[in-house]
């Protein structure tokens, strides 16, 4: 219908234009920027493969990538275990279930900047809450954020704490989909609590686990405000994240071409990692 066509283009046209300007153009221009040198003041110059060459040999970039993997290796498993444990607990008959759920979800709604500022205090070596608690049980203060060995794990624990409520909800939703008949069947077969978990609950939650792995991985690659506020990337660059490096290149060093190159590389790494994870989980499932 011509009238329908016209109405539709009035209603959807602005969005199409928006997509062109704020999605399609930036994606295309990111690929152009990879080959440019540009400080936003003078005119951009063609740089050939300079940015790519620089990136390949850039120790700081690769340090940040390694840091991210360190972060993920702690964050992802910890996130799955904590979220699953809390979800299974909340899935029982509980008094005040929505209160517990709300409590665990609280950090999710709080700004990451606030959480980072708060946890800087909790992690503080001399006056931090955590060390004071440890002191009470006889553990000497740990320099959480200033020791290169503990800084990134400390941040990973904090991010896990902030997001766990979100993943609990995902697992709780998944638990609703396990048919009652399956649960009854496995109980009649005389399975122990652990066997029920191992052979029914865990496999049934595979889609949710894949989601948790994917989302927490993508989230990990976006790590920015935590190191920015808490450590500035230190100590010894051990908490430098890729996005922090990208931000500094753009904002502090005015190197748009190089910052965009980092962005493209990061997107590629995310794509490869997420696909690899899916493959791995798919293989594990087939076993």
């Amino acid at each position: 219908m011509r009238a329908e066509q016209k109405t539709a283009s009035l209603m959807a046209g602005p969005y199409a234009a928006f997509l062109l300007v704020f999605a399609v153009y930036p994606i295309a221009f990111a690929l152009v920027l990879v080959f440019l040198q540009w400080d936003l003041v003078t005119a951009p110059t063609f740089a050939g493969a300079d940015n790519i060459r620089l990136l390949v040999h850039d120790g700081r970039f690769w340090r940040a990538v390694v840091n991210t993997f360190v972060f993920l290796s702690i964050h992802v498993p910890l996130q799955i275990v904590t979220a699953l444990a809390l979800a299974l607990t909340l899935n029982r008959q509980l008094v005040g279930r929505s209160f517990w759920r709300a409590a665990f979800f609280l950090p999710v709604v709080i700004s990451g900047a606030v959480v980072a500022i708060l946890w800087s205090q909790l992690y503080a070596t001399d006056v931090g809450l955590i060390n004071r608690l440890l002191l009470k049980i006889g553990v000497s203060p740990v320099p959480w954020l200033t020791d290169p060995r503990t800084a990134m794990p400390a941040i990973a624990v904090m991010v896990t704490w902030k997001n766990v409520g979100f993943y609990v909800i995902i697992y709780l939703a998944g638990l609703q989909y396990i048919p009652r008949s399956c649960q009854e069947a496995i109980e009649i077969e005389g399975a122990s609590a652990w066997q029920r978990f191992r052979y029914l609950t865990l496999p049934s939650l595979l889609p949710q686990t894949i989601l948790v792995v994917t989302l927490s991985t993508i989230n990990g690659f976006q790590l920015f405000i935590e190191p920015y506020v808490m450590t500035g990337g230190g100590p010894l660059r051990r908490t430098y994240s890729v996005v922090l490096y990208l931000y500094n290149n753009a904002f502090a060093y005015q190197k748009m071409g190089y910052a965009a190159t980092i962005g493209v590389a990061l997107a590629l790494i995310i794509g490869i990692v997420v696909l690899a994870q899916r493959r791995l989980i798919g293989k594990a499932e087939a076993l």
Binding site: Y25, Q222, A250, A267
Partner: peptide, 9 residues
């Protein structure tokens, strides 16, 4: 598409 890709452009 990850947001980091389009951030700079």
């Amino acid at each position: 598409v990850p947001g980091q890709l389009t951030l700079i452009p």
